[in-house]
Design a protein around this nucleic acid. Structure first.
Length: 416
RNA sequence: GUGAGUGUAGCUCAAUGGUAGAGUAUCAGACUGUGGAUCUGACCGCUGCGGGUUCAAGUCCCGUCACUCACCCCA
């Protein structure tokens, strides 16, 4: 038993689970290519300031959950808790906005949050996501949402719910927040201490609270949907219409708030009923001020991020791909050289091939072949070597035949 | 950050406070040209860690760490 264990909230992934990861990653690459997204890989740590400015210094993520450290030159660095800020930073830094608009990126990679681990929640976790810059049309919102929901369906997740809201923009949100604060102040005594603090900070979060007093009080609070400016209202209506073109059912959730401050207008979240407490599979929205706030041009942006661990949990029933392999066995160690060479030749043809170098007798080797779920076991002994053949046993049907080595390839092509 | 539950062999789990066990996996043999079954044997443990109570602790108590679940937050 090892003394040193993986740090809290981290884990090792290996077979058979790793097959699901490979499947999911391949699916992401293939799917988002269809929408002309380009992969972008950014560093897993950034200057801490990127996240406090980008995500919002008042957010829970920035205040409590960041892995921040100082390097040897006393720079404050942070393991990325999400990737949108990094992608924006990279686009600004590399002048990617100059290339071609709209810009479309997708990413896959580890994120880090100092959270208490739980089902579907780790300190190092894997997200994939997409970002579209320089396109403020509501149809893009709808396309991004479609590309989120449709992908989840394509990988076999059935029970999901799409919650949709508009959280307004710098034109209309400040006035609404004033109204909300007033309403909250009036009911302050019914609110829990946590929510009383939220009044000054981010009163939208009061809607999230499940304390009976807070939930009761907040039911009467004004909703952002009734206080959107003309532009936001029109945009939101157009998003909903475009979603109907695309046959994407959604649930309007006027209290939906996202945890990162940069969202404007469209905000959405996909949840699953099968996940327990950590039921958010994916969340995203529009962030039309973020690029400017991080020092770039005044440019629109929208995207989402999805939690891959949570998707993997839904893939539990996915049949693990049975690797069909070939097993080369030898009757006596004196034929080992022939076995090795046969294995090489077969791998050259693309087959996964196993040889057990310490196989003492054929029985043991067959047992091993069985364990490895070999499709065929190829046996070499004096007979075969002398006649330039190999005995090939179909492990399922138990049929065995002697195949001349020169015909083996053709035979395998037919029977493998 | 708050609360609850659980930590015993690689894995799944036993053990009224009284010698740490079984199944499974692994290895070997029965069986030196053929797998899945069966039988026999071997290997496998600072009972998470540190204290305490006791003649005696896997078991009771305290602490700690880890995992799990919920709150919270979020993906």
């Amino acid at each position: 038993m090892s003394e040193i264990k993986a740090p809290k909230g981290t884990r090792d992934i290996f077979a058979p689970e790793v097959h699901k990861w490979q499947y999911l990653e391949a699916a992401i690459h293939a799917y988002y290519r269809k929408f002309l997204y380009q992969e972008i890989r950014t560093p897993i740590f950034e200057h801490s300031e990127l996240f406090s400015r980008g995500i919002g210094s008042e957010t829970e993520v920035v205040q409590k959950e960041m892995y921040t450290f100082r390097d040897k030159a006393d720079r404050s660095l942070t393991l990325r808790p999400e990737n949108t800020a990094s992608v924006v930073r990279a686009a600004i830094e590399n002048n990617l906005f100059e290339i071609m608009a709209p810009l479309r990126f997708y990413y896959i990679g580890p994120m880090f949050r100092y959270d208490k681990p739980q089902k579907g929640r780790y300190r190092q976790f894997q997200q994939f996501g997409i970002e579209v810059f320089a396109d403020d049309s509501p149809q893009v919102d709808a396309e991004v949402i479609f590309a989120a929901v449709d992908f989840l369906k394509k990988v076999g997740i059935v029970q999901l719910q799409l919650d949709l809201n508009s959280v307004g923009c710098p034109q209309c949100r400040p006035a609404y927040l004033q109204l909300l604060r007033q309403a909250a102040h009036a009911e302050e005594k019914r609110l829990c201490p946590d929510c009383q603090r939220k009044i000054a900070g981010n009163p939208l979060r009061i809607f999230d609270c499940k304390q009976p007093g807070c939930a009761d009080a907040s039911r009467a609070f004004p909703l952002i949907g009734d206080h959107l400016c003309g532009e936001c209202r029109d945009h939101f209506a157009a998003v909903r219409e475009a979603l109907s073109w695309m046959n994407v059912p959604f649930h309007l959730e006027p209290r939906l708030v996202r945890g990162l401050d940069y969202y404007t207008k469209t905000a959405f979240e996909v949840t699953s009923g099968q996940l327990g407490a950590q039921n958010a599979l994916l969340g995203g929205g529009r962030y039309n001020s973020l690029i400017r706030e991080l020092g770039g041009p005044d440019m629109a942006g929208i995207g989402f991020a999805a939690g891959m661990e949570r998707i993997i949990l839904h893939l539990e029933r996915l049949a693990a791909p049975q690797p069909r392999i070939l097993f080369v066995a030898y009757q006596d160690p004196q034929w080992l050289a022939h076995a090795v060479q046969l294995a090489q030749a077969l791998r050259e043809e693309g087959y996964p091939v196993a040889v057990d170098y310490q196989g003492r007798n054929l029985k043991k080797q067959f047992k091993k072949a069985d364990r490895l779920a070999a499709a065929f076991t190829l046996v070499l002994a004096e007979d075969e070597v002398r006649s330039g053949t190999v005995s090939v046993k179909d492990m399922a049907s138990q049929e065995q035949s002697k195949i001349p080595l020169k015909d083996l390839n053709a035979w395998l092509k037919k029977n493998y």
